[in-house]
């Protein structure tokens, strides 16, 4: 227990880093994922193909590989960054975007096809049909799976700890090394701080879900 109480500032710092990593990656992934979903349902075959390939590759390979790629392969290709944190954000958002794309796509498919037909029949362009009619309605079914993906993202960000990024899990590992006799307590502390982030997300999910419920 001492290990936790004596190092509360460290835990706090870790929590903030994890929150930062997750928020930045989450926002990027939401934007990228929505664009990928839009490409997937677009009338342009090349866009559909690209989106499908991207999603299949990133969704079906381990996150660690995305991290290796961002942290080790990208720098060799000339893409360098001062901090490993940037690599972590690239890996996390690229990986999470694939899942978000699938969730948004299933949401788009849940909107009756007549809605898109009506929008097209009054002369809307594809981008307008999607942004004004389909996505606002898809959002309602997409919120629960999206929150699940974001919760997974918060937890996945711990992989960054293995790539020299000091976030919650990274600090946890340091503490576990320093307090060899209290490893269990240290890790329980880490788990507790993760819960501080993820449980509110779950509560948010059910609140939002209730608010945006729509009758047909």
């Amino acid at each position: 227990m001492d290990a936790i109480l004596e190092n509360l500032p460290l835990y706090w710092e870790g929590l903030l880093r994890t929150l930062f990593l997750s928020t930045v990656s989450g926002v990027i992934a939401l934007v990228l994922g929505t664009l990928l979903a839009a490409a997937r349902v677009s009338p342009v075959a090349a866009l559909r193909g690209f989106s499908m390939t991207y999603v299949e590759v990133l969704r079906n390979t381990p996150l660690t590989i995305a991290f290796f790629f961002a942290a080790i392969v990208l720098p060799r290709l000339g893409v360098t960054f001062d901090q490993f944190e940037v690599a972590a954000i690239i890996a996390l958002s690229a990986y999470t975007a694939a899942f978000i794309a699938e969730a948004v796509r299933s949401g788009v498919n849940s909107v009756p096809v007549g809605q898109a037909e009506a929008a097209r029949s009054i002369g809307m362009k594809f981008s307008q049909v999607l942004s004004l009619i389909i996505l606002p309605q898809a959002l309602r079914t997409v919120i629960p799976p999206l929150i699940n993906i974001l919760i997974a993202l918060v937890k996945n960000s711990s992989v960054a700890g293995a790539f020299f990024v000091l976030e919650l899990f990274g600090y946890g590992r340091q503490l576990a090394n320093a307090y060899g006799d209290q490893v269990l307590a240290v890790l329980l502390g880490v788990a507790f701080f993760y819960l501080l982030l993820t449980v509110p997300l779950g509560i948010l999910a059910s609140t939002v879900e209730r608010k945006v419920a729509i009758s047909r």
Partner: peptide, 30 residues
């Protein structure tokens, strides 16, 4: 298409928009 009005069997009103918005959306956005 903007010159061709279409009325569907299943109405297809935009479910998330009010009645007024359903009618104004086309003129405003298109």
């Amino acid at each position: 298409r903007a010159d061709v009005g279409m009325v569907f069997q299943s109405f297809n009103l935009f479910a998330h928009k009010t009645i007024l918005e359903n009618v104004t959306l086309g003129p405003i956005k298109v």
